[in-house]
Nucleic acid binder design. Sequence first.
DNA 1: CTCGGACCTGAAGCGAACTTCAACTCAAGG
DNA 2: CCTTGAGTTGAAGTTCGCTTCAGGTCCGAG
Lengths: 147, 147
Amino acid sequence: MHEATLTIGQLAERSGVAPSALRYYERLGLIHAARTGGNQRRYARTELRRVAFVRISQQVGVSLDEIREALDSLPAGRTPTPDDWAALSRAWRDRLDERIRLLGKLRDDLDGCIGCGCLSLQRCTLYNPDDSLAAEGPGARLVLPRD
Amino acid sequence: MHEATLTIGQLAERSGVAPSALRYYERLGLIHAARTGGNQRRYARTELRRVAFVRISQQVGVSLDEIREALDSLPAGRTPTPDDWAALSRAWRDRLDERIRLLGKLRDDLDGCIGCGCLSLQRCTLYNPDDSLAAEGPGARLVLPRD
DNA sequence: CTCGGACCTGAAGCGAACTTCAACTCAAGG
DNA sequence: CCTTGAGTTGAAGTTCGCTTCAGGTCCGAG
């Protein structure tokens, strides 16, 4: 017990992520594993933290691809320090703030806008939030949760 | 101009939703259209509101299937009143509140938890939120560790 | 009446994030 | 040594929310 490395089943149980998902993450380069002579994965305990970071980032609304980019920015060679992780999470924090802000606006406008008489949807603050519309050309494009 | 019904192109332009998406919504029973003799769709102007409701609901994080259920609860037969819409949106508002609350918690814990020394992920408030979290998108489910 | 752009349908494709399957191999307890 | 459960692979399947495509039809301005 409490050995140096974890099997995929152990990592799965400790992280709450299915083995199939862990293999998938590995294919995407989100996590890494050493191999035994018999080709089985053995995970360093630090991978637990990577998995946690992945899952938390997903809750923030970040795609696995972006998460990979973020993880790639961790120092190669040495085990990341708490400060390394904190730096990573600060970037996410900004996204989170923005997301919370938008949802708050949505909430504030919800009753009024849905209930109101306006059919002029393109002008509606709710339907056409000023921030998420920047690009996308002419007409009212509704750009969604991604940003 | 300003005619009684809208073609799919007009509804698309006014709502900012692609014609293909509108046809898709119709297949799912989210919106409805009358047909001309030549089988082309003609939308009542009230459909604009349904489309708006769909898009707004998506931002709240509700699936199209749940949105359909909600729309089905609108009074059949008569055109929904502002009050009908307001009732509908109040339910969403609760979800929104919950979602904002969870994201706020995520934010509050983010630096501390990711940066901290705990590897005891299953106990981490962040990783293992006590509440069930609405999934962000397809497949992006948070599978909680067994308590 | 003609022309071209808007519209129709069903089927297929897409991308994200996985899961499932089949057919194996590995590893640890008895 | 043998059994059994855990692990391996690549390929294919799944769900969601659409978009794209092919092969046609409609309709309104000229």
